[in-house]
């Protein structure tokens, strides 16, 4: 891995001169970088099931903000075939729920009305494996907001 501009001997000498503290900092940054890369890789892999396209279809390409949406779910779901979740977003006209690593991303879309006491609902969903569940709310003023939450699944919920 030595480059012509930086011969191996020199590299080794530099490395030997590193203090303990430097080494600690180096390790921390390597760990952070690995974690970041892992996360990015995971996110990319999960987009493959069409989550991005489903978001696009729901929002029509509008910008999706964050905040204002609550997604309640267990951190660990023992049985993926029935995971209780609840969503709420003050002033939302509709909320769409997506599962980012299911065979298909769509889960359900709730629409509220003037008679709704609050823009909140609860249901039970299937999750094939550990993944991020996403709730996107269409607010009364036409803006969009989302919440994301990882749910760990011990046993997948897609049957045989």
């Amino acid at each position: 891995m030595s480059s012509p501009e930086y011969p191996r001997e020199e590299l080794r000498r530099d490395f030997m001169q590193l203090t303990r503290r430097d080494l600690g900092a180096l390790c921390a940054s390597v760990v952070a970088a690995t974690a970041l890369a892992g996360r990015a890789g995971l996110a990319l892999a999960e987009e493959d099931n069409g989550t991005a396209a489903a978001i696009q279809a729901f929002t029509g390409g509008a910008e999706v903000g964050e905040g204002g949406v609550t997604l309640g779910a267990p951190e660990i779901a023992e049985n993926g075939s029935t995971v209780p979740i609840e969503v709420s977003a003050d002033g939302a006209a509709a909320i769409m729920i997506l599962a980012s690593a299911n065979p298909n991303p769509g889960v359900a879309t709730f629409e509220f009305s003037a008679l709704s006491g609050s823009s909140s609902a609860a249901t039970r969903i299937r999750l094939a494996k550990t993944q991020d569940v996403i709730a996107i709310a269409r607010m009364g003023d036409g803006s969009f907001s989302m919440a994301k939450r990882q749910i760990k699944v011990t046993i997948g919920g897609c049957g045989g």
Partner: peptide
């Protein structure tokens, strides 16, 4: 009052709670 469009990812014996 409340409408839900449902995909196969909703569990068997679908349950909904709303206000």
């Amino acid at each position: 009052v409340f409408t839900a469009s449902i995909e196969p990812a909703v569990s068997a014996n679908p349950y909904f709670e709303f206000t």
